[in-house]
């Protein structure tokens, strides 16, 4: 097993799928000549040429819509959004067209498209570039949404997404791009809709996705060392489909749940998870479900305050102790 970065893992996934299937095309702003705004696609133009690796103008509604149209005829476009925040100018294409066309055609059409890019706050760039739209998009039937937290999951989920025959939106994280981890050399996928228990524990379940998983794992260490609490961390990996069984199994074991995510609190992913737990494991709970999300305001620019606005280790530890009280 090689130790590679989250960024390299994503690139390896695309490289392998480009080799495996000549219908796979990488498209987006700066993905080819510039080697990727975040260097995720670095080197792909050189290896695969301009037919497979395509620079687009800054024109999200146009090129995302183009990719959706091409996917209806069997092309498998992997579209990079420089930030998922920019998806908002292509919302009609992403939701109405990719998300609805199979349904409205009574199953005659499908869109095997992947749209990927970073969706995170914490980078000191202000509100317009810091959106985390996984809950917004996952609320639309017809769309799949995944949020990898580690290099292993980034590669496996990306490969599954490219092979998937429905629209899959992969939300990455610029802060994780340099994180390193073990990734197998052989071909593998992480199926969509399978959560992963990233840390075993007995006293409290933390459910998280994306970078909140990393924050939660750090908090779990502190909770064990300083408070003697055994925390289990469930990484959703996939928002829709959702692995309900893994969440419920963990809660049935620990009887306490804390939900952590970087979204704002209103209508976040944790709202759905909290509903699930109360509906299917209510009698298992020894305490109310708590959550840690970003403070409910547009993303603040000031770096010192943004670090406090988002879930951080201190806030997770403090909230965990409340659930355990």
């Amino acid at each position: 097993m090689a130790v590679i970065s989250y960024r390299e893992a994503l690139r390896a996934a695309m490289r392998e799928e480009l080799k495996r299937d000549d219908k796979v095309v990488i498209m987006g702003e700066e993905v080819a000549q510039f080697n990727g705004a975040y260097k995720v696609t670095e080197g792909l133009l050189k290896e695969f040429g301009p037919k497979r690796i395509v620079d687009t103008p800054i024109s999200e509604a146009g090129f995302i819509g183009l990719g959706i149209g091409a996917s209806m005829l069997g092309i498998r476009p992997v579209m990079e959004l420089m930030f998922w925040s920019f998806s908002y100018v292509a919302f009609d294409q992403i939701v109405n067209n990719a998300g609805n066309i199979r349904y409205m055609s009574g199953g005659l059409i499908n869109c095997p498209i992947v749209i990927r890019g970073p969706a995170n706050g914490g980078t000191n760039v202000g509100a317009t570039h810091s959106h985390t739209p996984e809950a917004i998009l996952a609320s639309h039937p017809g769309i799949k949404v995944v949020c990898p937290a580690t290099p292993y999951d980034a590669k496996g989920l990306m490969k599954a997404a490219i092979r998937d025959n429905d629209p899959v939106y992969v939300m990455e994280n610029t802060i994780l791009y340099n994180d390193k981890g073990e990734v197998p050399d052989e071909d593998y996928i992480v199926p969509l809709g399978v959560a992963d228990v990233k840390r075993l524990g007995t006293d409290l379940t933390i459910v998280a996705h994306g970078r909140a998983v990393i924050t939660s794992l750090k908090a779990a260490e502190i909770l064990e060392k300083e408070h003697g609490v055994s925390v289990e961390v469930v990484d959703l990996r996939s928002i829709r489909p959702l692995d309900e069984e893994t969440i419920l199994a963990s809660v049935r074991k620990t009887h306490r749940a804390l939900l952590v995510e970087e979204n704002k609190p209103f209508c976040g992913v944790d709202a759905q998870v909290a509903y699930l737990i109360q509906s299917k494991a209510f009698d298992e709970l020894d305490a109310p479900i708590h959550r840690v999300s970003s403070i409910d305001a547009p993303q603040i620019y000031c770096k010192r305050m943004e670090d406090l606005q988002m879930p951080n280790v201190e806030r997770v530890v403090a909230e965990a102790l409340k659930v355990l009280a």
Binding site: V25, K51, L66, A70, N96
Partner: peptide
């Protein structure tokens, strides 16, 4: 025949994508 689209102009990028696919293939 790829629709039949309800949002004014929303089909224009899709049609461009169909043409892209024809050319790609």
């Amino acid at each position: 025949y790829w629709g039949g689209h309800g949002i004014v102009g929303g089909q224009a990028p899709l049609g461009t994508g169909l043409a892209y696919a024809v050319k790609y293939l």
